[in-house]
Computed example of a mutant assay.
Amino acid sequence: MADDPTLKPQDRAQEVSGEWEHDNQQWWNEYMASADNEIVFASDHSIEQTQAPKDVGPLPSLADLQAELNASYELDPLAIKQFNRDGYVKLKQVLSPGALALLRQEMEMTLLADLGENPKLDFRSGEMMWLTNDIFRQFVLSPRIAKIAAALMGVQSVRLYHDNALAKEPGCGRTPWHFDKEHFPIASNNVCTAWIPLQAIPGNMGPLAFAVGMETYRLVESVQSSRFDMSYDRTVSNIFAEQGVDVDNGPFGLGEISFHHSQSFHTAGPNNTTESRMVLATTYFEEGACVIPAPTMISGDWRKFMPDVGAGEPIQSRYNPVCFPRER
């Protein structure tokens, strides 16, 4: 994204401070354009053939899916320590291949219906799908996943902020470096996102990559956000390299999902495969949290995710149900 020479510094500040006025797909379009695609990880390389899982046996019934997503996951205490130390954790075999294949099928159909046959988008997105789709609803409100989030953050109860369906298409470039605390207008440090790949993600498909260390964000606190060019992404990448920050950009196995804290800096490489990289991301926050006093355009279409909740007010809208313990 090139600089706009007609904009003065005060205009840029005003643009970032104002609220976002378009839809979520437009936000992603502009956001992805701010990535510096000259930044390359060792695992990024030329296009290779790969396939989403297709031979997983019979897809689960809705009853079987509910049983899986309601059952508790045995969380290793070491995982909680890693989350609090590093800002993220990756957990294996959280979900079955059949459950993931079912959700991928639903996501493909839903994005096709919402965005059309040929949207000409390198990055397709959807949100709030749990409101109209029973399969999405089971995943997004899953006590199994929400309980993990609560345990990692050390809180008793969590609500849903929102879900995101994220499809990085073949040939799509990097996702820029960022941390969610800047994007989520939630006045709490207890916010985390479950990132759920709907297929295995090899290195050349663009797995989520983490800057290791909960406090790593402090290295780049003074870097100013920009919606006009790639300067933020490039500057953050350079600082991390200069400071010797470890970056975990390892692949995701089938059924493996990650949880990252809102302070965790992360990015993702390009999708250099022939298959769409599909992910469901669900964000949870501790019960009782409020909206920050002054949300900006960086928060995107936040009013859609928590209707009738004003700045500074507790987030308790009908779109932010308690996911753990599950409301009866």
Rank of each mutant, 00 (worst) to 15 (best):
D3P: 15
D3S: 13
P5H: 04
P9W: 04
P9G: 02
E15Q: 11
S17C: 07
E21A: 13
H22T: 11
D23A: 02
W27M: 00
W28S: 02
A33N: 14
N37Y: 00
E38H: 11
I39S: 05
F41Y: 14
T50Y: 11
T50E: 10
P53R: 06
V56Q: 02
G57M: 07
Q66F: 07
Q66N: 08
Y73M: 06
E74A: 08
D76G: 03
R85Q: 11
D86E: 03
L91R: 11
V94M: 01
L95N: 09
L95C: 09
P97S: 06
A101K: 05
M107C: 14
D114A: 15
S125P: 04
N133Y: 11
L141I: 08
M153E: 15
M153R: 12
K168D: 09
P170Y: 02
P176E: 09
T193K: 01
A194P: 04
I201W: 00
Y217D: 07
Q224F: 01
R227H: 03
D229T: 09
F240L: 07
A241W: 11
A241I: 12
D248K: 05
G250K: 11
F252K: 13
L280H: 06
P295E: 09
T296W: 06
R303H: 11
V309Q: 09
I315Q: 08
Y319A: 12
P321Y: 03
R326Q: 04
R328Y: 08
